[in-house]
């Protein structure tokens, strides 16, 4: 009888499926499953659940994107479809997250362009997709409707629902069969509240990914880390309103002073270190999807997460 980890949890994280193949009514080459764990990530001799999903983030309006992430992919960033194609071929993430940053410009109104962008990106890559829409109640309804419709059947992950503006995202997700990213500002209680609100307007639990918001390393990451751990342990103790897979994104990592002030190659090294040193602890704290913007972080975070998850590291593809 050997000493090993003590696992007296009673709960299990729900499963979430992202992407739909042709047989499932979409056009993706594969689907992604996350969730299913009965312990913290990687704990146990044969851990339940799935390997971490590594997402790579792109934007439709690259002017509103960190320079270091843009420069790392060269010309590809000028066009979202080209960027997505490049990502699938060269960077090889599990998931592509498209940010419709164009909607963040004041006075944005061109919803037709959003629709076109989504369609082109879906054409350009066969990877499962997550799309971040607008962030303004005044345009949310139309933007999410357009995104949802353009991606109908693809079972995308649609972001972002917040406590103050969740109805538009939820309506689009329900109408077109997508799942939702539910984001709350670094607080377990607010995360739970939002999940309850979504449940009560009819979003099933297996259609929600929790985004507890991840501060950059040195800029609040400690709060995010503990909130993720708290959400995960609450779920494992049986709180079903928190038992959804979590997504953690290094959104703030590449705009910090340390990255901005670095030049050339140094900027890349700092950017990669900052993303890696935030996303790996995020995985340890319970994130199922880790999302980065620098292409070089993608293989590093994937290797690290799979070494933590697998009993035999490097045991082949």
């Amino acid at each position: 009888m050997g000493i090993s980890t003590i696992s007296d949890w009673t709960g299990q994280i729900g499963e979430l499926v992202i992407g739909a193949t042709r047989s499932e009514g979409g056009t993706r080459s594969r689907t992604l499953k996350v969730g299913g764990e009965k312990d913290l990530n990687g704990i146990g001799n044969a851990p339940l659940g799935y390997p971490a999903v590594v997402a790579y983030e792109i934007a439709d309006d690259p002017d509103l994107w960190p320079a270091v992430a843009r420069h790392a992919v060269g010309d590809a960033s000028s066009d979202p479809a080209a960027w997505a194609r490049f990502a699938e071929a060269e960077i090889r993430p599990d998931l592509i997250r498209l940010y419709c940053t164009s909607t963040r410009r004041r006075g944005f109104s061109d919803c037709a362009a959003i629709r076109k962008t989504v369609e082109e990106v879906l054409q350009a890559t066969s990877l499962p997709i997550s799309i971040e829409g607008s962030n303004d109640p005044a345009i949310d309804s139309e933007v999410y409707q357009k995104i949802g419709e353009a991606a109908a059947g693809e079972r995308i992950l649609l972001g972002t629902a917040e406590a103050g503006r969740y109805r538009s995202v939820a309506a689009a997700a329900m109408a077109y069969g997508h799942s939702i990213i539910a984001q709350s500002p670094i607080d377990i209680n607010l995360a739970k509240q939002l999940n309850i609100l979504l449940r009560e307007i009819g979003i099933p639990r297996d259609r929600i990914a929790i985004d507890p918001y991840t501060g950059a390393l040195g800029y609040g990451f400690e709060y995010s880390y503990s909130v993720m751990e708290r959400i995960r342990t609450a779920a494992l103790k049986g709180d079903e309103d928190l038992a959804m897979p979590m997504i953690s994104s290094a959104v703030d990592s590449l705009t910090i002073k340390e990255v901005r002030e670095a030049e050339g190659e140094d900027a890349d090294r700092i950017a990669v270190a900052w993303e890696l040193y935030a996303m790996l602890p995020a995985y340890l704290a319970g994130a199922a999807i880790v999302s980065v913007r620098h292409p070089e972080t993608v293989p590093l975070i994937r290797d690290a997460c799979s070494s933590l998850f697998q009993v035999h590291p490097g045991g082949g593809e």
Partner: peptide, 25 residues
């Protein structure tokens, strides 16, 4: 050499220590 093993060992040791189940750890 297995990071998975390291994670499981450090987790188990901390659990056994703070719960005082295995004071030798």
């Amino acid at each position: 050499p297995s990071l998975h093993e390291v994670l499981n060992r450090t987790t188990a040791v901390r659990q056994h220590a703070v719960t005082r189940q295995t004071p030798a750890l």
